[in-house]
Design a protein around this nucleic acid. Sequence first.
DNA 1: GTGAAAGCGCTAACAC
DNA 2: GTGTTAGCGCTTTCAC
Lengths: 342, 342
Amino acid sequence: MSITIKDVAKRANVAPSTVSRVIADSPRISQQTKEKVREAMAELGYHPNYNARSLVNQSTKTLGVIIPSSAKIAFQNPFFPEVLRGITAKAYLEKYGLYLSTGQTDQEILEEVKQMVYSRRVDGIILLYSKVNDLVLPFLTEQNFPFVLIGRPHGIEDEAIYYVNNDNVRAAKTVTEYLLLLGHERIGFIGGNLDQVVTLDHKLGYQKALENANIPLRDEYIVYYDEVLEGGQEAVIEFMSLEERPTALVVADDLMALGVLRMLDEMEVSVPDEMSLVSFNNVMLSELSSPPLTTVDINIYELGFQGTDKLVHLINDANYEEKKTIIPYRFIKRQTCIKRTK
Amino acid sequence: MSITIKDVAKRANVAPSTVSRVIADSPRISQQTKEKVREAMAELGYHPNYNARSLVNQSTKTLGVIIPSSAKIAFQNPFFPEVLRGITAKAYLEKYGLYLSTGQTDQEILEEVKQMVYSRRVDGIILLYSKVNDLVLPFLTEQNFPFVLIGRPHGIEDEAIYYVNNDNVRAAKTVTEYLLLLGHERIGFIGGNLDQVVTLDHKLGYQKALENANIPLRDEYIVYYDEVLEGGQEAVIEFMSLEERPTALVVADDLMALGVLRMLDEMEVSVPDEMSLVSFNNVMLSELSSPPLTTVDINIYELGFQGTDKLVHLINDANYEEKKTIIPYRFIKRQTCIKRTK
DNA sequence: GTGAAAGCGCTAACAC
DNA sequence: GTGTTAGCGCTTTCAC
């Protein structure tokens, strides 16, 4: 087998516990012994065994990352890689490893999470989605297992849960108000999957803005689509078939907006002249469309980074009580919105 | 602490070893005892501890996934999430967990890999990139640690390494020949980072096709860019500044092609009428650009899936000898190429 | 068919 | 300061 602490101990003429202490750089060990032991480690090419350590420490220094079940959709959207980028950055700094979930369906995911928790593969979990009626959330809560949600809880007492989110309601309200100020009154809303809490929030913000402006909500102006690209296109077909077409659109996601743009282009509806557009996320590509998208930068990277930060705190500090963190967003005006002339 | 095998043993009035055998579903245990033990497990809510198991089995049932150091770039490109999707799918089927690397620089990555290997955190490693002069590859080879490369090895004896790749040389040759057949003679090449083996391969294929057609290679028609989106745009500026502009372009990546398209649009150069374009990867968005991209589908998902399959084989079957797998590509003709008229 | 006991590699009391 | 020892939770000989 490989080199163990005992081999090093023998080589350095000390006890295994001394070697262990040298690894931990205990102040109770003399400088001289430390050097002797380190030398022996180097000579033998010793490296501590993580499993043995985890076993006795009851800690794995590993964080579980749960990706939404609709992996196909999740992975398509730049949101996911970007949030993962924030997570890996912080995890590296904190010297935590990352353990990825692999399930594809809700059930598989739940099973995976249970395994992670029960078999103690990870010290905490970071949930990359917030879904309505999610099963994982209540499970983790009940188990009292450290976890952080990217997004906000729903259908469960908010107070019990640690999460990192944007104020998506306010963001949606802001962009809708912006369109209102530009003179638009017929504003369509293309939401994402209704299972996602963010969709609910966007809708709420949109609704509030219209209510404040005394513009009645119209059912035919509100649609929801799961698939970002195709959804955007279908939504356009739907809206353009109406007798009273909207003159502006609030779109759940930049990618969806790209689909919208594409379909509008095919229909020879000019953006922004005939249709204004504002979307969310500010993914890398949104600057590159023609015209470049007016969008809301929700700082995805920071969601991941702060989420990981919170989880690490939660794991290591029993008194940590900062339940939620709200990441600020930035409204990015580019070229898909214009003043309504008529 | 939590429920251990001993608790179950007590509850079921058997020895711990018997419980262990029941977990492994050993045929040497009577049906009756099995049921008794399983009942006790259920009653107590027992779940095996992974670390303890890994420690004695010397196996973690976990695969390490190494993402290229330039994470920012890597994560931006849909290649990465898509290959990960293939990996997770297969890993789930094989009941392997996934352990993600978190380093940002080459050095950090190397350290991470060393940790994974030395501390036995994973049973095998899957490398998501193939770079020229990579440090990880020789390390893993030297350690004789099971690993699979997505891409092809470079600067090291090919024969020693397990890998999954496309025939990128042939793919590049094919698309170049396609452009030649359309009557183009001034064909530009926009490659990715020269550190990447795939860039070398694309270049080689491009070169071969031109040579076969007796068209001399022109240095000014060959450029390389790291950043996919910006690179595409800068390349266009470069090419359009030439006295003899190319009439067609081979572009390393769809995202880059999107940047090219954008810049061409700004310059009011019509695609495909004034400039033909063919790129690689067939990412989701490539169908949505205007015009939709003619591209090569390299089956990214399958690269990940087969890579994982190969790694699992390699880990579990000492006699496994299928060093390499070539994933077929498909040439997807859409609307960015047209016959050269003049 | 089942139990006793050793041991995977490490840490942490507890000694001295 | 350093050594001795028990034990983390599991598997696996070796008995019987």
